[in-house]
Structures are given as structure tokens and as C-alpha cells.
Design a protein around this nucleic acid. Structure first.
Length: 502
RNA sequence: GCGGAAGUAGCUCACCUGGUAGAGCGACAGCUUCCCAAGCUGUAGGUAGCGGGUUCGAGUCCCGUCUUCCGCUCCA
């Protein structure tokens, strides 16, 4: 990843301010806060859960409703343990680590040993290098950490920084959280199919729920390639360093879509979804310069092309969404492990041969966006501290310029005073609008104070009922972003808000 | 994981050299106010992160621990 210039202190301050704002106005709370919190876990509050849900709905609708060839599913978080063998998560993401006690530098054990093997080769000791790597593979396969440490010490492998051979014991870094399946602990009952048979994982990505249901959906939905399956759901990953608020959490939510295509067409579909996804982001009205692509050079084990859509967060440009060309890796792997064919029969005529394309394992283009990251992107883009001071007196406001379609509350209904029959009129407006979108009624405090409170929550519209309303059935509508207001008939309110929220 | 800083009311902070906690904002109830916060009255809210030690007495000194933030490291 390209190195970013450090954000100025002002931006760091803005990030802090956003975090505080989130807590103070009921968007996001630290998990289990009364017990000092749980590292890298957060709860969404009364406002945050609305905003989050609106982002979800916006994505879901644009993916499924607006694409005839994409359907949604909601797969379970628990999956058969073999799923994660097939996906490569068990083998590829369980990295034994070792620390040098002098330099405090941490290494992946395999990287350390492979590095040493390279040195041997450079010395012309090809045979020794091969033997070393073979010994490592054998020990890794057995999870023999003591043996691996012995191997490192026997070969006098030293830390590049400290130059010493003073190592800690080897520890395992587990990407996935695991738990016990069944009501009895594993130790009390004999494992059904070998050791650890009762161990299940909390899924580290939602994608596998889609892959294992590929044929279910294709057949029951009579889907024809190319088609997509979308899913929104929780995923869980142990993070080495989990920080930066909701940007990197241990429990997070993904919005993924796997698009199944004819082999050989992956390049064009990859480009298609790359462009399509950026279009989606821009449709929210966020400026284009806040986004950029970042192509991956080093690819994950399942991909033949990958890029991120990065967003200019308060702490710099960071990954928001990934678009990956996953080849047929996942379906092919599931076919091998499950012994169930994961093929699709394509009846379309191949112009090259004049015959149907026939049976094949589809290739896959994945779009995967972090819902929590999207939340943070939307919020940090919307957050603004404004200085409204006049020569007479200082004044300021905090406003969330959220897209109206995403705002937790769409309309505030405010009687100018709480007597003279104004609340009764306001209540009528509430009853009229409540079924259609989220409204908020407030009669306490001065009108200005109420406007500012709504600004802080990102409410795009406030209507105020005053004495003139009693005469001519009009109200003042006040716009959040411009703070301008105008007079409109009561019967126009609903229509105006509905148009704005799409 | 390493280094640095910080943890006192919902928020921002004060209490200097140890004597059983204060302010502003916010919240709530009311008054006032007829269109953009900080007008008036009243009320609620803290065993000073947690544990231990020193002391007649600790928010204040010492040790430990947890959490958060900043930097470095690491990372799919």
C-alpha cells in the first residue's frame, strides 16, 4: 500500500471529534462500556443503528432490486468446519509467530526460515536449503511449534535487527474465532470424526455462505450465468492490532456480492464491477476526489486480480471496498472437499464453435464492502463544525450533512410554542408522515436550539408550526445544510420529504 | 508487541505543596421566548478506572492492574 503523508493534527482532532460525537448523540458506544469495554468491539446506538440500516437498505436495493440478475441470501454464521479447509482460511491464515526478545521484532516463522534458506542458497548450499524447507514443512504440518523453534535455534537463525538468536516461544496467530458446537464440551464426548470435530468457526467472511449455496440458488432461482448472489452479514476476525474506532473491528459486517461468470470473461466483468461500484459510491453525492482505486500487486491465494476502492478517511486513504477476481478457486475447492459437483450447464451458443458452452465451474467476481467502514466514511464526510459567528457574538454549530436517504431521522416537527393549539397541529403532521418515514417531535426549548440539535443528528428537514399555520395551513420548512427556510403548505410536506429521500 | 500520554458528573475540565469533590455546557421539571445554541428558577447526577500500600487522613504520594489515545511495529 502506498505510504500516506501523515494527516495534520487538525485531521486527527477531527477524527477524535467524530468519535466523541458518535458517542454523545447515540450513534456508537464502546461495547460493554460499563466493564471498561471490549477491545475493538462497538455497539450501534439508537441513531447509529438507523443510519447503519439505511446504508444496508441502500446497498441491498441497488444490488438486488436494481439488477435483475442478482438475488440475495442470508446464510448462517456457523458453517461446516470443512468449509474453512476448502476456502484456505485454516491453512493460509494460521501463521505461527515468533518474537526476538532483544529487538522485539516479530516474525512469521515460515518467513524467518524461508529467509534463512535463501541465505543458504546464496552461499551455494542448495541441498541444505532444501532440507531445511522440507523439515519446516513437516513440522508446520504437525503444528510442532517446539520442533520449529528447535529448528530455528539449531540453524542459528538470527534476527536481522538485533543479530541475536534470543527467541520467544512460537505462538499461533489465529485469524478465526472458534467455539464448541453442541451442548456438551468436546472433552466429554468422543469426537465424531477425529480430533476437534466439535470445533466450529465464526465465519471470517460471508462469501463462503454464498459459495456453498451456489447451486441451491442457481437451480431454485433458475439463474443463468452471469448472475450474482448478494449477502449482508456479520463476520469475525482476530486482529493483531485492532484500532482506529470502527475501521478495524473484531466483529464487523460485510456487504458482499459474488458474481458468477463464464470462464474467460473475468477481465471484462472485473472492470465492469470496478466501475459499477464506484458509481454506487458517487450516487450518494460524496465528492469523487474522496475516492481512489488501489490495485493489488500481491494477490491473495484465491485471486487473479484485485483492487480496493479507498476512501479519504480522517486518518487518510484506507480500504473501503474490495473488488476481487476470485477465479474458480472457491467453487473448485468446495467441489474437491465436498465431492459434490459445483458445475453449471451453459446452454448458450458459443459463437466460436457454434455449440453450447456446456459444463463448467463458473468464475467469480467479488465485490465486498465493509458496512462499518461505509458508515465511518459517510459519517466523516458528513461531519462539519461551522463557525457562524457575527461581529455581535460568537456562534457555531455541528452539522451532519448526511444524504437525506441515509439520515436516521428525516423530518422534525416543531411547534413554535407548546400552547395555543400548535402542538395539536404538529401532531396531525406527525400522524400524516409517521407511516412513511422516520419523524421526530420536539416542543422543548427555543426553536433555534431544537434546530441545532437536529443538525447534530443529521436531520435534513425541520418544519415549524406557528400561529400563521392556524390561519392558512402553512409551515416553515428549514433546510439543514443551508439553514434557509421557506413557507410551504402542510399538505406538501410529505411529498417534499419523500422526494428528497428517494 | 514496544515507547509515550491520559483516565474525576452525559461532555470539556478544575482541585496548586495530601484534610472525606467543584465549574461550564448538557439533561430533566417549570417560566420566558413567536423562527436558528449559551434569558430566569428549580432538580437530578460522581464510593475520582480498579486493586493494594504509605499516612491520623489520598483524587492528590508509591506499586500493581485494566482501558483509551498518540507514535512505531505487524497485517489478509
Amino acid at each position: 500500500m502506498a505510504n500516506e503523508a501523515k494527516k495534520p493534527a487538525q485531521e486527527v482532532g477531527k477524527f477524535q471529534a467524530i468519535i466523541s460525537h458518535c458517542k454523545e448523540y447515540g450513534f456508537i458506544f464502546p461495547s460493554s462500556e460499563i466493564y471498561d469495554g471490549l477491545q475493538a468491539v462497538y455497539d450501534y446506538g439508537q441513531m447509529g443503528s438507523e443510519l447503519k440500516k439505511n446504508i444496508k437498505d441502500y446497498w441491498w436495493k441497488s444490488m438486488t432490486q436494481l439488477h435483475d440478475n442478482i438475488v440475495g441470501i442470508d446464510a448462517a454464521i456457523f458453517m461446516h468446519p470443512t468449509t474453512w479447509k476448502a476456502s484456505g482460511h485454516v491453512d493460509n491464515f494460521n501463521d505461527p509467530m515468533i518474537d526476538n526478545k532483544d529487538s522485539k521484532k516479530r516474525y512469521r516463522v515460515d518467513h524467518l526460515i524461508e529467509g534463512h534458506a535463501e541465505l543458504l542458497k546464496a552461499d551455494g548450499k542448495e541441498k541444505e536449503a532444501e532440507e531445511l524447507l522440507a523439515a519446516m514443512d513437516a513440522l508446520l504440518a504437525k503444528d510442532d511449534f517446539a520442533g520449529l523453534k528447535q529448528l530455528i535455534e539449531d540453524n542459528k537463525m538470527v534476527c536481522a535487527i538485533s543479530g541475536t538468536c534470543n527467541w520467544t516461544d512460537i505462538r499461533q496467530f489465529n485469524l478465526m474465532f472458534s467455539t464448541e458446537f453442541g451442548s456438551t464440551e468436546a472433552s466429554e464426548i468422543p469426537p465424531a470424526g477425529g480430533g476437534g470435530a466439535n470445533k466450529v468457526y465464526l465465519r471470517p467472511e460471508t462469501a463462503q455462505g454464498i459459495f456453498v449455496n451456489f447451486l441451491n440458488v442457481q437451480k431454485t432461482g433458475r439463474m443463468k450465468v452471469p448472475f450474482g448472489i448478494a449477502q449482508i452479514g456479520k463476520a469475525f476476525r482476530n486482529e493483531i492490532v485492532a484500532r482506529q474506532f470502527i475501521f478495524r473491528m473484531r466483529e464487523f459486517e460485510q456487504m458482499e456480492m459474488q458474481f458468477f461468470i463464464r470462464p474467460g470473461t473475468q477481465k471484462e466483468w472485473y472492470e465492469f464491477w470496478k466501475a459499477e461500484r464506484l458509481k454506487w459510491h458517487r450516487s450518494l453525492g460524496i465528492p469523487a476526489e474522496k475516492y481512489r482505486y488501489h490495485d493489488h500487486i500481491k494477490l491473495a491465494h484465491y485471486a487473479d486480480a484485485a483492487c480496493d476502492i479507498e476512501f479519504d478517511f480522517p486518518m487518510g486513504f484506507k480500504e473501503l471496498e474490495g473488488i476481487h477476481s476470485r477465479t474458480d478457486f472457491d467453487l473448485r475447492s468446495h467441489q474437491e472437499y465436498s465431492k459434490k459437483k459445483q458445475q453449471y450447464f451453459d446452454n448458450d451458443i458459443d459463437p466460436a464453435t457454434g455449440k453450447p458452452y456446456g459444463n463448467y465451474i463458473p468464475f467469480v467476481i467479488e465485490t465486498s464492502i465493509g458496512l462499518d467502514r461505509m458508515f465511518l466514511a459517510v459519517l466523516s464526510q458528513a461531519y462539519e463544525e461551522q463557525d457562524l459567528s457575527t461581529p455581535e457574538r460568537p456562534d457555531s454549530r455541528v452539522v451532519l450533512k448526511l444524504p437525506a436517504s441515509l439520515a436516521p431521522i428525516k423530518l422534525a416537527v416543531l411547534p413554535l410554542t407548546k400552547k395555543d393549539g400548535l402542538p395539536e397541529v404538529a401532531e396531525r403532521i406527525m400522524s400524516d408522515c409517521r407511516p412513511h418515514f422516520r419523524c421526530f417531535y420536539e416542543e422543548k426549548d427555543s426553536i433555534g436550539k431544537r434546530y441545532r440539535r437536529m443538525d447534530a443528528l443529521g436531520t435534513p428537514f425541520c418544519v415549524t408550526v406557528d400561529h400563521q399555520t392556524l390561519q392558512d395551513d402553512t409551515v416553515t420548512i428549514r433546510y439543514r445544510d443551508t439553514m434557509e427556510q421557506e413557507r410551504i403548505p402542510i399538505e406538501k410536506i410529505k411529498e417534499l420529504v419523500m422526494n428528497a429521500i428517494g
